[in-house]
Design a protein around this nucleic acid. Structure first.
Lengths: 111, 111
DNA sequence: GCGTGTCGCTACATTAAATGTAGCAACTGG
DNA sequence: CCAGTTGCTACATTTAATGTAGCGACACGC
């Protein structure tokens, strides 16, 4: 079991096993990534509107994440601003159950 | 649209809206959190085994994440080591579709 | 009851990432 | 020409993650 990178996509940690889920978990496990996808769920937003939606993230990291998400094929820049691609909407769909879970969680383990 | 914190749980960013999903997204959007839950999917692991599974994460951050996950009620420390709670297994179940999606993604947008 | 080995966990110095503020070039109206 | 927007970048500061080492506690064999 070699320790060095195998087919890992560039810049994606935690994917040494070659399992795509690792690359995805790594990508989504970066700060604001999940949030960005979440905020785009209802349609495209301009970069500034998205920034506002994301509680005024620094534009630096917003751009970084948007670039990553565009390279991953989840987000695209259109005339309406940034929006989810078909693939991105699929991704979002996979964590729809998460929303429901979050509601239950907040009641159960809630502060 | 108030800018200050509402019901945000302590130490959890991005939850100013009071929506639990934000708190959850924030928690899961921290480095290694998703991975840890993933690695515990098949049963409990000792902290050291978990560390090995997570590509030798630094114990510092591993402990930090484990503490957060325990406080969130997703992980517990038993005689067998760290394991997912019932709630944690529910959480894991919500991103099972993600695994399938990851496979498709790697073929579609693959490097 | 002294080594060896593991457990969960912590200290701390180093390196990497995120934040916040400011501002650029390009375009679209007045 | 000017004011307002767009996407995006520079850069200094702050925060988070990494890597190495090691602690006290518990379980073995001896």
């Amino acid at each position: 079991m070699p320790k060095q990178a195998a087919t890992a996509r560039p810049g994606v940690r935690g994917s040494r096993s070659g399992r795509p889920i690792m690359a995805l978990l790594d990508l989504l496990g970066r700060r604001w990534t999940l949030r960005i996808v979440w905020e785009l769920r209802e349609g495209a937003l301009t970069s500034r509107a998205l920034r506002a939606a994301c509680d005024e993230v620094s534009p630096t990291i917003l751009q970084t994440r948007l670039t990553e998400l565009r390279e991953a094929g989840f987000v695209e820049l259109t005339d309406d601003g940034y929006g989810l691609t078909a693939l991105g909407r699929e991704l979002f769909a996979t964590f729809t159950p998460l929303n429901r879970f979050a509601e239950r969680w907040s009641r159960q383990a809630g502060s």
